[in-house]
Design a protein around this nucleic acid. Structure first.
Lengths: 127, 127
DNA sequence: TCGCTAGGGTTACAGGTGTAATCCTATCAT
DNA sequence: ATGATAGGATTACACCTGTAACCCTAGCGA
């Protein structure tokens, strides 16, 4: 609906994560990793890789033996997009509201609060 | 995959939000609201409401004229679930990592940082 | 040389999601 | 009394996602 909502479905995230980590890889290599990690057959991985390439999530480079795939977008970008989308949807775009909610739900421990504060301190010093 | 991943798709969120806000409402009332807000026809809304009821997202009470619908789960619960799911997927479960990332991406302004800090202060005092 | 495997392509298929149309009955308002 | 609505049920249909199987060819190792 939106213009360029990246939106990466679950199974594709697994492959993205792998590629963000391991640079260019061939389908077989990806398939091997996914097989261990998720139990998918080679077929499944191949299908996903093809879809992702079609969608523009992956880029290909013809290699000696086989094509090599790598992510077409940086992880940071994908993560940011998803995060902001959730923030907007659930918290009216306000991170403060989110933290607030998490704490109230007891979903954040005192320790985590301290940690957060430390992060803020560091951030502010740098800025 | 998970056990009871609530997982509420986009279009259904719209209806949930409306119901969380406006308590019990009949399909027609919901449809009216959705029509204004999203342009859906009555048909679409009815379909969604039925699905959601089947899924257990909505509860029904037979009313005089028509059935009245209301959310089967509190907003806080849904929001928390979605939030933690995202946190786990993208940030290894760490809110600190998320804030960190947002700031680095310049996606958080100094003002928002201050606001966050204020929230933390208040939280800690209360705890 | 012969079979196994990697590299690639094509096809399948069920369940979920977005978005509706159609049809029937009871009722309200003119 | 009649036509416009509301309440409700049923059916449709395309696209996306999760998961695969099948098929063919070229090359590698025994």
């Amino acid at each position: 609906m939106k213009k360029n909502e990246i939106s990466i479905p679950n199974s594709e995230w697994a492959i993205m994560e792998f590629l963000w980590e391991k640079a260019p890889m061939t389908v077989t290599q990806i398939a091997k990793a996914m097989e261990e990690q998720t139990g998918w057959t080679k077929s499944t991985t191949k299908t996903l890789v093809k879809r992702m390439t079609a969608k523009g999530l992956l880029r290909v480079k013809e290699g000696e033996k086989a094509r090599e795939y790598y992510p077409a977008i940086p992880r940071s970008e994908a993560v940011l997009a998803e995060t902001e989308s959730l923030l907007a949807r659930l918290y009216n775009g306000s991170l403060g509201l989110m933290v607030n909610t998490l704490v109230e739900q007891k979903s954040l421990s005192r320790r985590e609060l301290e940690e957060l504060r430390a992060i803020l301190d560091k951030m502010e010093r740098v800025k």
